[in-house]
Write a protein that binds this DNA or RNA. Structure first.
Lengths: 212, 212
DNA sequence: TAGATTGTTAATCGATTAACAATC
DNA sequence: TAGATTGTTAATCGATTAACAATC
């Protein structure tokens, strides 16, 4: 399945858990597209990758489509993650209700700073990095979230990979190098801001040019 | 400039601020590509969009390229932002040293919760949403960061847009609807995790198939 | 039936990359 | 000079979308 499709499927799933589509019960590719800023053809094509069919002249059953999307994304059961970094960012994710709602389960919070270790974040006791491999093994964790400063991120990534995770969510503002078998997704905080800064500026330039 | 190019330019800029390329002074498209997981042709093509030329058989001057990238992205001067949501996530961004280092300046932190208002986050007094338009106007803020729960995100987006921002960084796990003139970048926390979950699972399936 | 909307094909569009002349 | 590496072209690749037959 093409990568852009996977990305949109995740959006579709989040969208279907919103109030509006759930109230309606059925949704057409047209409405889907309007709400997510896509074309209806893209939506239909994406859904055609799933083991799921819509109903001619009715659209898609919201509940059923949601289930199939979850199953396809591997989120029909809880997806176990660990969080490394117990600063504000790490703590924010640990207590993040929306993530739990969407199917992610945090199995541990870790930090290199001995002063933070043994403190609590919500229900989690912050652990040392030494405990990382055991937790990853015991819970079958396949995804690590990197919530440390840029300067520490690569070292943390290495430790997570050594401990056996297969995917990394990188919230640090730095490029990571990992073996090919490991997937990395950038959270795009700094990158996203830079992009916006560029968009905003070029829009401003266009406008002043239009005025002149 | 194509959107994928802008995205990579932001990565190039972050990469050039790393220790390694700065130590070297010069970098070739080949080395660039190897470190960022791209092809050298892509790097050269991307750089060709800039008002900047490399040196045949030497590569690119790291310092000069960094400056041109910053200018192109609009980050040669501080980019002003506001943060809405003073929970862990909002606070994390407010005190985030890497963002300041990369050229972003937080001009205010806001929250709807009256119990948080007037408290401090680093140097910022948390303000009510009523103060938002004034701050945005006075500082010429063009970017708003949404760090509130999914349920509140659309309302916050509306207020930011009304107050005049031209770009939104959305950290909430929900789809936003905004006027066409406003740019939105998703921080991809939940979306990124879903994507990883999917990648990890299909890799596991491939492997078990290979064994069988 | 008329209207709506699917699933799929083929056309279009745009991004990536291989290749290479230019040149330091 | 030989080696390295750029900037650019043209070819390739892949994703998006328009169009429409099928059908509820």
């Amino acid at each position: 399945m093409p990568y852009p499709v996977v990305r949109r499927l995740a959006r579709y799933r989040a969208y279907l858990s919103d109030a509006k589509p759930r109230r309606q019960g059925w949704i057409s590719s047209k409405e889907f597209a309007a709400d997510l800023g896509l074309t209806s053809a893209t939506v239909r094509k994406d859904i055609s990758y799933l083991k799921f069919r819509g109903l001619t002249s009715r659209g898609y059953n919201v509940r059923d489509l949601g289930k199939v999307l979850s199953a396809t994304l591997g989120l029909d059961r809880k997806c176990n993650v660990v969080i490394v970094g117990a600063g504000n960012l790490g703590r924010a994710l640990a207590v993040h209700g929306d993530l739990a709602r969407l199917g992610f389960k945090t199995c541990g919070v870790f930090d290199t700073d001995p002063r933070l270790q043994h403190r609590k974040v919500a229900a989690f006791v912050i652990q040392s990095m030494a405990a990382l491999p055991t937790v990853i093994n015991n819970y079958g964790v396949s995804i690590g979230i990197i919530a440390v400063p840029a300067s520490a991120a690569q070292a943390v990534a290495d430790q997570l990979v050594d401990a056996g995770v297969r995917g990394l969510l990188n919230l640090a503002c730095v490029n990571l190098t990992v073996p090919e078998r490991v997937a990395v997704v950038e959270a795009r905080i700094a990158g996203g801001l830079a992009e916006l800064c560029c968009c905003v500026r070029s829009a401003a330039i266009r406008e002043s040019a239009a005025v002149a």
